[in-house]
Amino acid sequence: MDNNISSPFDHYADALLRLCAGLSWLLLASFFAVVFSAGYARADETCAGSNLIEEMAKSDPAKLETLRKEAATTPNGHGLLWKIEKPGIKPSWLYGTMHLTDPRVLKLSDAAQAAYSAADPIVIETDEILDPKGIMKVMAESPELMMFTDGTTLEKVIPADKLDGVKAALSERGIPLSSVNKMQPWMLTSMLALPACEMARKKQGAAFLDIKLAQEAKEKGKQIAGLETIRDQLGAMASLPAKFHIDGVVEMLALGPKMKDIFETMTVLYVQGDIGMIFPLMRSVSPDGTASGQNYAEFEEKMVSARNRTMAERAEPIIAKGNAFIAVGALHLPGEQGLVSLLKEQNYTVTAQ
């Protein structure tokens, strides 16, 4: 089965939303929004990133200890698989995903595989991503969510002193700026951020974890459901200020070669279930090393907290029927406003497995 969405969107964006002003938060959308995971790919590079945690353990153990202490304070910050229980209802499961095709990400633990295999329905962020025409329909109805529709172009909004760098980065991927000049800045950032090896796997037909789970379940005749729509996800991203996205392009270029190391480290943390460590890591590698300001607060509310509330509300009637396996980006799980906490507020017992 061809898992790529065949549309002009393929030439515009691939997976992660990435970086915001002064902070690498949009990288975290590898956990947050599945709709951005089909796209342009060049199949001539391999992943060769280093684990920044291992390097920090040697170069700055005190800094690493500070990050670990911060991670330890995150509610529900460790674990990918969570059991959801309430008397009189068959247990359901909550599983944190990373929207990548890395083989390490695709391999479920024995416990997660058993829960997934026995469950019905299988629930992902948006089941609309299974329909190749879904994104095109939204683009046709609301093109402004992904494209400039008022005569604006990337050349006009990217700072003049950064424009040559953007052109060079695109050229390395075989993409002339003129072919993507009408894209919203966040789509350009997505294109620049994703490692070539990940892009290559998707170009070759590999499905990222969420789609893989849904497709395999569908082939077995199980029910598939979604907690959001494509429009929900695109609308959340498009609602953030333009400067937020433009600054993301600039920071992406500033991080440059470090991107492979960031992806490798995030992947290792994910596989270990050490989700609470990911936000502190992102702060530590961002150009200014901080997590303050309106940009971050707005990103956290619109891309994380608000969506968590929507997911929890829409998941509840599904969980109430029992035996569901709910797979969403792992960073939707931890924190006081995370799905684990929100489901507990609905009087479910939610425990890490």
Rank of each mutant, 00 (worst) to 15 (best):
D10C: 11
K302R: 15
S59K: 13
I84K: 03
F36P: 10
K63I: 13
G235D: 07
R18D: 15
P280R: 01
E316D: 13
R283E: 11
A206I: 09
A13Y: 08
K58T: 15
G39L: 01
I5K: 12
Q223K: 13
V34C: 09
A315C: 00
K182N: 14
I129N: 10
A312F: 02
E316F: 12
F9G: 10
C197D: 07
S117D: 14
P87W: 10
Y270K: 04
E300I: 07
D261S: 02
Q346T: 08
D261V: 03
L23W: 11
L19R: 15
E251H: 10
V123C: 01
V166S: 04
P143N: 01
P91I: 07
H245S: 05
M303C: 15
K243P: 09
T97W: 10
G335M: 01
Q346G: 06
E313Y: 09
L339T: 08
G205E: 13
H332L: 05
V285L: 02
G165A: 10
A242V: 11
L94C: 00
I5H: 11
E70C: 03
E155P: 04
M252K: 12
K202L: 10
A160R: 12
D274Y: 02
A236C: 04
G226Y: 08
L163W: 03
A291S: 13
S117G: 09
D232T: 04
F263D: 15
D120C: 00
A57T: 04
A33G: 14
A29N: 12
K260N: 14
W25Y: 14
E336N: 12
P132D: 02
F244Y: 15
V268K: 10
L106I: 07
I211R: 15
L227M: 02
S190A: 09
L145R: 02
Y116G: 09
L108M: 06
A118V: 10
L108N: 01
T229E: 08
I158G: 09
N4V: 15
I129M: 13
P257K: 06
K218D: 14
S305V: 12
A71Q: 02
R173G: 03
N323P: 01
G248L: 05
L145Q: 03
I53Y: 06
I262T: 08
Q215D: 15
L339Q: 07
C197Q: 02
A196C: 08
V304F: 14
N308Y: 07
Q204P: 07
G49T: 05
Y348E: 00
K258C: 06
N3E: 09
L170K: 05
S239T: 06
A330E: 07
K133R: 11
W25L: 13
L163N: 02
G276N: 02
G338E: 09
